[in-house]
């Protein structure tokens, strides 16, 4: 299925929650969706017969200035098509539903997005830092992140 067909299909089922397709000529186009309903949308993507996105390739968080973006790359083993779904959450309350219950692969990806970007995944069973030390402060991949000078008495910038 092409991204337009998927978009139309999603639009029928979730009308207002599906925002728009951003066409990117030299890359992958993506669909922006409403973060409040992300779990249902992704569950539909996984379970709907002609979509069958059983393979969660990647969840990445990104800082797009005023908002935090969560990008879901989905792939279907059966139909060999893929889709990029984006949801933007405000920086003040960066909460979005976890999809661990749909794909276990999301577990560590979400922990990483929480660790490095600071997106909070509601319903994640074990949302702790994964790459940084457990007591690290701040989310290093945010654009406004300032590297601390010291960590437990050690100099951070060598």
């Amino acid at each position: 299925m092409t991204i337009q067909e998927i978009y139309d299909l999603l639009k029928i089922h979730f009308n207002d929650d599906i925002k728009e397709i951003t066409d990117i000529s030299n890359g992958d186009s993506f669909i922006t969706v409403n973060p409040a309903n992300i779990f249902d949308i992704l569950q539909f993507c996984r379970d709907y017969e002609t979509l069958d996105f059983d393979y969660l390739t990647l969840i990445s968080g990104m800082d797009s200035g005023e908002n935090l973006g969560v990008v879901y790359h989905l792939y279907s083993m059966k139909f060999k098509h893929s889709i990029v779904i984006k949801a933007f959450v405000p920086k003040e309350s960066p909460n979005i539903q976890s999809v661990v219950y749909l794909w276990r692969a999301a577990d560590w990806h979400e922990r990483e997005a929480f660790d490095l970007i600071g997106v909070v995944f509601d319903g994640h069973p074990n949302l702790i830092r994964i790459l940084c030390p457990y007591d690290w402060e701040g989310h290093p991949l945010r654009k406004d992140y300032v590297t601390p000078q010291e960590y437990h008495g050690m100099k951070v910038p060598y």
């Binding site: 990117i24 030299n26 890359g27 992958d28 990104m62």
Partner: peptide, 29 residues
């Protein structure tokens, strides 16, 4: 500017890079 997810069969499996460019000489993400 643009964004792409490119994957290849690494020795251990699917290795992909999700690259977001903002048109400057450095990638956004």
């Amino acid at each position: 500017a643009g964004e792409v997810y490119c994957k290849a069969e690494n020795t251990k499996g699917e290795l992909g890079f999700y690259l977001v460019s903002n048109g400057s000489d450095k990638p956004e993400r």
